[in-house]
Nucleic acid binder design. Structure first.
Lengths: 369, 369
DNA sequence: GTGAAAGCGCTAACAA
DNA sequence: TTGTTAGCGCTTTCAC
């Protein structure tokens, strides 16, 4: 009857102590499982806690200890199943180690990311996993480091920030897949990415997103090896929304020196590119070859099934969690995070290059404009 | 030099007060923007805070005020773009009202959901948005209510819990779409859902997930109207993972009284069903008609494009956020959350029912077994 | 093993 | 408007 009306005051250690007839300190020790407590006292305290239905105030605990048993995750776009899957890897692993996981979504927006980091820092999470937006700005990440809380980067490394990074090296697979395209006769290979840049691509341009930089480097390598000029003009950035993706795709396909193959940098872009290709009445791979990063279920459903570069996303999430947990517990037994490899999955969207002319002459395409 | 080595102690209001030569209370008032402070003092305090690089300890604040300016979101499966999109609606809206949003993913697991709620309660979030797993167990949600913190349910209502629910009423659209299937000659219409149940479906079975209950009710209504017996045997639950989805699909299509149309309860199931249909060498909609809930981009990419029931997910997320924020601020101006409607988007996956025999006689299907 | 008392960094109540 | 004094619920000295 003591708590039926209105909001009851929470039961505190003091209450439990009184009930168990011990000091507050002893009660706290028994409840918090630290310090020295006799079996008898512990039992009495635990019993009292039970009857009073005591629930520890984690906030107060965190304030004193600085620990929250929580890992904070910051991702750019939770709508992208890539991160959804990674998130599951993180949660599963973290939970197994006794850590809660909270996530903040930033919508690939730097300000939001800075905010998210601040919030998590304020909440005193024990460790961070961040998939940073591609931006040279990393003051907020440095703040995390200064706070002394472990930080693990996911997918992208940030220059000037010396922390663990869980990512696959895209250079090799980008090179390999580009080589296959070249072997199939493609020289006009386009690359579309959400990477934000005012400047158009040219060899040597500084790219602040490591996975994008690596993909381009791999492509350039393949062209170099084949002694072919790299088609700078077909590298397109800023494909952050469906409209841009559609526009870029159209540009790429209707240009007088049209692309014969398109590489989509992520699943969301791929969706837009394929849709636009279909709208233009073109056929994959007869009219245009297509290759994308990330292997989602829908890529196997469309005809032809798409050739993709698959990444072990769940495992990477798990590895990221393992890495932070280790650091939090200071059990960094020198165990380096494993190397992850992406691999090319050949399905049916890459074919022999079509001569540039024929695509351009096709009247219904012009009509589609 | 005072903070170069090791972890520096955070600067506190006391430090700022000293620097500004005012009392701790005045400094706190100026910093926290409450109470009465003269312009002069405020300025001095703010300046001092600036030079000392003061950062308020939100945890301490929360402990005193009970408020955290944070909304906690609990969803079942962040890999499902349905929730990803909802999440964006929530974040955008909450942020606009000055609330941070943190999310916990439960993997459609009740224990995880209970845990998530506890964590969020412990972190003293100001309000909850929960997309509960379909389970009659709702003690944890009642605990939220007892805590006095606003709770808004997303997608599913929970019986015995009197809170705002942001969801579309599926009955009408389920009825309508089923009627169209019946018009096209379908009587053997299957329904596949992740809903967990030991018992097979039969009329009158209690279903603890409101959207599923509504969909089935709508279907039954349509059959009733058409004076046709409802095919109880084609309602399949427990399609929680790809393997079960594949198995169920096979069952449904190879049975002696096979389904002529399949309705997938969500996008993840749809992926599995379509893949299996293709594997069996069947064609949509010639051999089997198909209908699914949620309108994702990939449904427009496959041939034929899929007929779907689209829901205004982003708007629903936004509405949920608006609702909690209102409750938190106690500005419930009687404004009821708007009604959301799902709508049938006819594309190309529904065709006329094929006679049951012909599908079963198809030799390559038996081969696929 | 135990308890008293002093924090953590902040807000809140009360006088002045 | 200002300052003093108590808290919030917990952990952590430090004696005993």
């Amino acid at each position: 009857m003591n708590n039926s009306s209105g909001r009851r005051r929470d039961v505190t250690v003091a209450d439990v102590a009184k009930e168990a007839q011990v000091s507050k300190a002893q009660a706290a020790r028994a409840l918090g499982d630290y310090g020295a407590v006799s079996d008898e006292v512990r039992e009495r305290v635990l019993a009292a806690a039970e009857t009073l239905n005591y629930r520890p105030n984690e906030l107060a605990r965190t304030m004193n200890t600085g620990k929250s048993h929580t890992i904070g995750v910051v991702v750019g776009d939770i709508e992208n199943p890539h991160f959804g899957l990674a998130m599951r890897g993180i949660s599963d692993t973290a939970k197994a180690s006794g850590f809660d996981v909270i996530l903040i979504n930033t919508g690939e927006n730097l300000d939001a990311e800075v905010d998210a980091v601040r919030v998590l820092l304020d909440k005193r999470v024990d460790g961070f996993i961040v998939a940073p937006v591609s931006s040279p700005d990393s003051e907020h990440l440095h703040r995390v480091q200064e706070s002394g809380r472990p930080l693990v980067l996911f997918d992208r490394k940030v220059s000037g920030l010396d922390v663990d990074v869980v990512a696959v090296d895209m250079t090799a697979v980008a090179r390999e897949s580009t080589a296959e395209l070249i072997d199939a006769g493609h020289e006009r290979i386009a690359f579309i990415s959400t990477y934000r840049s005012e400047q158009a691509f040219r060899h040597g341009l500084t790219i602040t997103s490591s996975p994008i930089a690596e993909r381009l480097a791999g492509m350039e390598l393949a062209f170099q090896k084949a002694r072919l000029p790299f088609p700078d003009d077909l590298v397109r950035f800023n494909a952050g929304d469906p409209t841009s993706v559609a526009q870029i795709t159209k540009d790429l396909l209707l240009d007088s020196r049209a692309a014969t193959a398109i590489v989509a940098s992520d699943g969301l872009i791929a969706l837009g590119v394929v849709e636009e290709i279909q709208k233009l009445g073109l056929e994959i791979p007869k009219d245009i070859s297509f290759l994308m990063y990330d292997d989602f279920a829908w890529t196997r459903l469309i005809r032809p099934p798409l050739t993709v570069i698959s990444q072990p996303v769940y495992e990477m999430g798990a590895a990221a969690a393992t890495a932070v947990v280790r650091k939090i517990q200071r059990t960094s037994t020198g165990t380096k995070t494993p190397d992850f490899k992406a691999k090319l999955v050949n399905r049916g969207s890459v074919g022999r290059a079509k001569s540039i002319k024929s695509a351009n002459m096709c009247p219904e395409i012009y009509g589609a404009l």
